[in-house]
Design a protein around this nucleic acid. Structure first.
Lengths: 236, 236
DNA sequence: TAAATAGTGTCTCTCAGACATTATCTT
DNA sequence: AAGATAATGTCTGAGAGACACTATTTA
């Protein structure tokens, strides 16, 4: 029965979209591209594209990320999040989108041209208020991605994905504070993150002049889970 | 470019598959159906089917669950988990499957016939050892679903989805012990779950004779999150 | 010098784990 | 009675939050 209807209906297209997040200028930003063609011509959209032949979903996500940003996607933290298939979510026809979240440090974007379309960082905080800045239902995809990132920070080590290869504990704390929109006690945060085995590996270096005592530099260690979690709510 | 290749390749079909889990006979079970047609004819598979026209993914999951089990899916805990699109995962051609997890109490299954195919509960513990009892890559889907269920128990209230409308704290503890494969201290568990606001609502009733002191009956309250979590590992 | 950031020490409160004790049923 | 399960009480250790205090830089 399902097979019959599959043969008699126009089959849905499968797309892969990416919510690429970074922390810059003290706020969470998302990577968007300006659409060159209808529908939603000229509007911002999450980067993405249709699944190609012989390609797994994860491969498609990596390919799209490389095409849109010119970055080596293999080194980024990228994870499948959710699929969206509401009828009418794409005016061209039936499209099921598999959404991926990617977290990356604040790197310069390649200029538009070649494979890469014009890509921009826009602050996520601008979005909740503004009415439908993004094409399709990408507003919803982004909201889900941000919420997932927020929750994931507390019990995993992915916050380091927002940081450059070497960073201070203060920069790591900035990530938590900016993504969560809260303030964390510097002393307790320091004690917490340095107490998790294999989370932060000291490199021996010291940070340069930032108007305070130089901080020790760390790189991300092999740990992926935080036990116990770093709590976001003070209400326990 | 993505659009071009989409027009020149056979478009993938989109399917929805369900890992329906329950706790019965002191082990975690999954609902499987016997395949009536090739491929994998006669083998067990997770219930599922192709997305129909004008249907959202969640709707398709609910429809499939109702068709396969005859149950009112609206009252069950059902949640999208992950999508799978590896080339070759279905010998008939390109199929992208969106997998859902459903948790339900141990209810009688409708007999085969009508829309419903022959459905069976099989214990999940039988699967890791046995080589490829399930059709397609449903082994992987099931493993991911079970792992998700295990992790979700610790920080949400979904364990009550495995219980009948009224249950004792001992039955709830059974759920945790069976799904996690561990033993939990009855006294500490009781103190923990009764201390979470809006998790368990006393109904005033008492359990019948089970060879011990009658236990108070509860129903699931409106709480969805557990703060702090119920820990599965004793290693902190 | 003041201001800013890094890092350590300490106190308290919450809570998980261990386990003793009491309560109430079935056999 | 004995055994089983339910529920409460108590102690201890781990850890989060609050915050005082020291250390080391820039302006």
């Amino acid at each position: 029965m399902a097979t019959v209807s599959r043969l008699t209906m126009p089959p849905p297209a499968v797309a892969v979209d990416l919510a690429v997040l970074t922390v810059r200028e003290r706020s969470l930003h998302v990577l968007v591209v300006e659409r060159a063609k209808p529908p939603y011509r000229g509007r911002f959209a999450l980067p993405g594209g249709f699944l190609e032949d012989g390609e797994d979903l994860d491969q498609a996500a990596h390919r799209e990320l490389a095409e849109e940003t010119g970055l080596d996607a293999a080194r980024l933290h990228i994870h499948q999040l959710h699929s969206y298939g509401a009828p009418g979510r794409d005016p061209r026809g039936r499209v099921v989108s598999v959404c991926y979240v990617a977290l990356m440090p604040d790197l310069p974007l390649p200029v538009a041209g070649g494979d890469a379309r014009a890509a921009h960082w826009i602050p996520v905080s601008d979005l909740p208020g503004t009415p439908k800045k993004l094409a399709f239902d990408h507003h919803r995809l982004l909201a889900d991605a941000v919420e997932h990132a927020r929750e994931t920070l507390s019990h995993t080590t992915v916050a380091t994905a927002f940081c450059p290869p070497e960073f201070t504990i203060g920069r790591l704390r900035d990530v938590y504070e900016i993504v969560w929109g809260t303030r964390l006690d510097p002393a307790n945060f320091h004690r917490k993150v340095t107490g998790v085995p294999d989370f932060l590996i000291p490199t021996g270096g010291k940070s340069a002049g930032t108007g305070g005592r130089p901080a020790a530099l760390y790189r991300a260690g092999p740990a992926t889970r935080l036990h116990p979690a770093i709590l976001r709510e003070h209400t326990a």
